[in-house]
Design a binder for these strands. Structure first.
Lengths: 183, 183
DNA sequence: GCGCCCATGTAAAAGGTTACATGATTAG
DNA sequence: CTAATCATGTAACCTTTTACATGGGCGC
């Protein structure tokens, strides 16, 4: 199972769609963190169907158009998707985690909270690592001149720090929201 | 020219290194946004050398060890790297932009400032787009239940908002710093 | 008539991942 | 004597990207 297949399952978990419609949705709605092309799309659909994770719901020939094949997710497909979403991701895999979060509505709030807490801890560790690196650089090489390699090294790590901070904040917001609305 | 080749140029712009040392540096220092393996490494080095962008500086046989091939960047290589760094990246390509910023010390501050300002503007537009999307969702579907697909949709866009914000802030910090230290 | 939209797909090439291969030395 | 480190590389596989192919209808 590759990530394209999980994306297709994620979309079909929401509503039945044709291959063409799935591509439209990916392009229009989640293109900022995932891109798909026809080459991955149709073979992935065939494989999902062969594995029994999706099934052909209708096969309409609308007048002149090519037969539109609308697929729906099966119970096995839904179980497979749920298992993938709750399975831990590596901290580097931003996009995989985002894809999983796109199906977080399938997961029980308590399970989701514990996933988010683990994730937050990992990113707090990374954040501290980056902070230490930058502090060491700044101490040793102050003042930094913009034509020195370390200027860029520090700049790149600063970007990492920003991302980790917003990641951690997002986890906290999600956890807070889930705990408030759990009762 | 693929991104691996630019990474190698970025490292050699800082100091002469052997293939093995480049891999060590990538693994140890910039692994959080870039990964490299031997398969890409050695063919890329050969190609860069064939294209005259790097040259073999020394070819030492230290007693028992395999001959260590230390490469240095050429003037053509430096020009090529500089051209790549100043060339605009698409807003989606985070990692490419980060790689380019790793060599930003080669670029004149004024040029770098204008690159960062363009970049910031692009991300401000994206941020506004996401904000509008979330507002529309929240207005239509309040209150959001955590077992409804839109809960996840909104969550994912919120993460995008966080990233865009930290990106914009980083650009602003860089621009501010460069302007202060320009005189 | 030209190009775009719908809707399915395929082929070829480039890029990336995993694992293996050599071969000497040093640390346990 | 086993495993790890240094240092080069190759082979096989998987994924991704780019482009093409079909074919009718619709707007300009």
């Amino acid at each position: 199972m590759n990530s394209t297949q999980y994306v297709l399952l994620s979309l079909l978990a929401r509503e039945p769609l044709s291959g063409y419609d799935m591509k439209q949705q990916v392009d229009g709605r989640i293109s900022f963190f995932y891109k798909m092309n026809n080459n991955q799309l149709y073979p992935s659909l065939s494989k999902l169907e062969a594995d029994g994770l999706i099934r052909l719901q209708s096969h309409e020939k609308e007048s002149y158009r090519p037969t539109k094949k609308v697929y729906a997710i099966t119970d096995e497909g839904l179980a497979c998707l749920k298992a993938w979403v709750t399975e831990p991701s590596e901290p580097e895999a931003w996009d995989e985690f985002l894809l999983k979060q796109y199906s977080s509505w399938l997961v029980e709030p308590d399970v989701l909270i514990s996933i988010l807490e683990t994730r937050r801890r990992e990113h707090e560790e990374r954040l501290n690592g980056y902070k230490e690196k930058v502090a060491a650089f700044r101490e040793q090489y102050e003042p930094l001149s913009s034509d020195h390699p370390f200027f860029s090294t520090v700049a790149v790590i600063e970007m990492g720090i920003g991302f980790e901070r917003s990641y951690i904040e997002w986890c906290s917001n999600m956890i807070g929201w889930l705990k408030e609305n759990r009762i």
